[in-house]
Simulated scan of single mutants.
Amino acid sequence: MTANTSKGIQYPQSTDHTRIWEHLQNLATSADAIIIGNKDVQVFTSSGTWTRPAGAILVDVQVQAGGGGSGGCAATVAGQASCAPGGGGGEYARGIYLPATTGASVAVTVGGGGAGGTAGANSGANGGNSSFGALITANGGVGAQGGTATSTAASLGAGNGGSGGTGGDWRTNGGDGGNGQVVNAVPLKFNNGGNSHLAGVTRASGVAASTTTGFTGYSYGGGGSGPSNGASQSAVAGSPGGPGVVIVTTYTA
């Protein structure tokens, strides 16, 4: 007779008189079922359902939330400027699970990038949360406030990086966006979009004296950078954050 270890490897007992080569064959066959031999990678850029592949041994889940949008800028007159802050990057989380924990299928939610604020001193929207069922949730980056027109020094707070999600083995907060700053009626170019674990910092807008738009946050989960206005310019809209993603890598026999 044979028996199995707690991990499923078969071995002979003292009463088993099967030939040695048959014992070795059984050992190889049973061990083969629990040794990683391949992998299945599913990348979700939109919400859907993950179905567990056959022969799953370990399931590695990465969850990235969407980045926040930057604020919009108000119109200016002579002697004024406006500089909207950048949006925060989305939170990231990761967990490794046994197949019994995930079950046969899991609902996947992918958070979109937050919209940029509409033209004027209007706030950008928060990035969407991403999740892998009830096992992991990562929170989106915070949208930045709008940039008001001013003739004096001003510093407007940027969107915070996403944080406070649940589940997983470890997580990292999204990076904060850059502040919108005006000095002596000149917008200063510090209004970058916050980084995420899977995306770098989105650079700030360009020439100071004219109307300059920001840039869409990088994929995946970067915050949008803010726009700015020099003197006598029209209102300008903010930029959206980068979308989130969920990546599920299943190691199979």
Rank of each mutant, 00 (worst) to 15 (best):
L198Q: 13
A209K: 08
N229V: 00
P243N: 15
G221T: 02
S219N: 09
G214V: 00
S225T: 12
A209E: 13
S225Y: 06
G200K: 00
A235V: 03
A231S: 13
P240Y: 04
A199V: 07
G217R: 04
S225A: 12
R203F: 07
T202L: 08
G223L: 12
G221M: 05
A235F: 00
A237E: 14
G242F: 01
G200L: 03
A199D: 05
S225R: 05
A209F: 08
S228F: 03
Q233F: 01
P227A: 12
G238V: 04
H197R: 15
H197F: 15
S228V: 03
L198T: 10
V236W: 08
Y220C: 14
V236L: 12
S239Y: 05
N229Y: 06
P227V: 10
T202Y: 07
A208Y: 02
G214Y: 05
G224W: 02
S210G: 14
P243H: 14
T212L: 11
V236N: 11
T213M: 12
G242W: 03
G217E: 08
Y218F: 07
S196D: 11
S234I: 09
S239L: 05
L198D: 10
G238I: 00
P240H: 00
G223C: 15
G217C: 12
S239F: 00
T212S: 15
T213A: 13
F215Q: 01
A199F: 00
S232P: 03
G222I: 07
V236K: 00
S228G: 06
